[in-house]
């Protein structure tokens, strides 16, 4: 699939932005700057980047507890994300959601979700809205291999299929549900095989190769926009760190296994490909990396210097309308 030079730059910028955001966040979390848990997605950058390269702000994505990459790929600004994770009032959710609930409706980011599988029907609902309104937008649901054990995935895929909704199911199979290996918990070798049960295409994709993801996603999203219904993509990928910031993955997986995956790292993979084909050069890529390094440092500074939420925020946003709101909520 053809990629414009602008799109190539966007892809590299986005993947590197996710990588640096996660790495810096882990450093900051180790220093006690995050107010809660952080589930990082470094290693998995090619997935959200290759998918969201085809989306606009009018398209909606549903996400997971491991949602920073989805947010960034959908165009959510890193300063507001960092401030949210630091529990600050300037965060995207005013410091009321944290890492697991980052949302930005102006960018079509329907929210990270802390309940495994719970975000999947929301993306189906966004696609239902799109169909009813006929506005041409699509819904994309990101979820992990662990979520495929939830009933919501079955219900959502069946609904999307019988209603022929413009939705793409994106399973990021990073091979571990917390610490439980996918081979133990999932009955099939390729989760994409299950798509056949819902009369939709199921495609296994190399989730470490952004070009492969870009091609598969382009086809799936075009199919959704054309009114031909849902597609299931299984991205085989790997998270470099533990389930959450304080998890040591070496209690349940071997360093040798990590090395095999890291040899296929999506960033050097991309760099090699574009250099070989003279699409981008190292000077330009270095300039991008430097700019992102600065952006993430600025995001940390913004988050550190931002105010904490005022205590009245405890009571706001529970409802759109509720009589005697303070009296009634206390």
């Amino acid at each position: 699939m053809e990629i414009t030079p602008e799109k190539l730059r966007w892809i590299y910028t986005t993947m590197y932005r996710i990588r640096r955001f996660e790495e810096v966040l882990l450093e900051q979390t180790a220093q006690g700057k995050s107010m809660g848990v952080a589930h990082t997605s470094d290693g998995e950058e090619a997935g959200p980047t290759g998918i969201c390269a085809h989306l606009t702000d009018k398209d909606w994505i549903g996400s997971t507890h491991r949602g920073h990459g989805h947010c960034i790929a959908k165009g959510v600004e890193t300063a507001g994300m960092m401030a949210e994770i630091f529990g600050k009032y300037t965060g995207l959710c005013k410091g009321k959601g944290g890492s697991m609930h980052i949302a930005d409706f102006t960018k079509g980011m329907l929210g990270a979700n802390g309940i495994v599988g719970a975000g999947i029907p929301l993306a189906v609902g966004a696609a239902l809205s799109a169909k009813l309104k006929g506005d041409g937008s699509v819904g994309v649901s990101f979820f992990g291999d662990g979520a495929t054990g939830e009933g919501t995935i079955h219900e959502s895929m069946n609904l999307a299929s019988v209603w022929k909704l413009p939705v793409v199911f994106v399973c990021e199979n990073n091979h571990y549900a917390e610490s439980t290996p996918v081979e133990y918990a999932v009955s099939v070798a390729d989760i994409a095989d299950r798509a056949a049960s819902y009369s939709m295409p199921g495609v296994v994709v190399d989730g470490m190769d952004v070009f492969a993801v870009y091609d598969a996603a382009g086809e799936a999203i075009a199919r959704a926009r054309a009114g031909d219904g849902p597609t299931f993509l299984e991205l085989k990928t790997y998270r470099y760190h533990g389930h959450y910031h304080a998890d040591d993955p070496h209690t349940y997986r071997l360093p040798q296994e990590e090395e095999v995956w890291k040899a296929r790292d999506p960033l050097p993979n991309f760099e090699r490909r574009v250099t070989e084909q003279d699409l981008m050069d190292e000077v330009e890529m270095e300039r991008i990396r430097n700019a992102i390094d600065q952006e993430i440092q600025d995001a940390v500074k913004f988050a550190e210097e931002s105010p904490l939420p005022p205590l009245e925020e405890l009571y706001t946003d529970v409802y759109v309308n509720y009589p005697n709101s303070v009296h009634g909520l206390r």
Partner: peptide
């Protein structure tokens, strides 16, 4: 606009919430 659903309460209630969040 008068839409039958399969017997999937979690699925269609979740879809309704997603639809509500996105303008219907």
């Amino acid at each position: 606009r008068v839409r039958d659903t399969p017997i999937s309460e979690a699925g269609f209630v979740g879809a309704a919430i997603g639809a509500g969040l996105t303008g219907t």
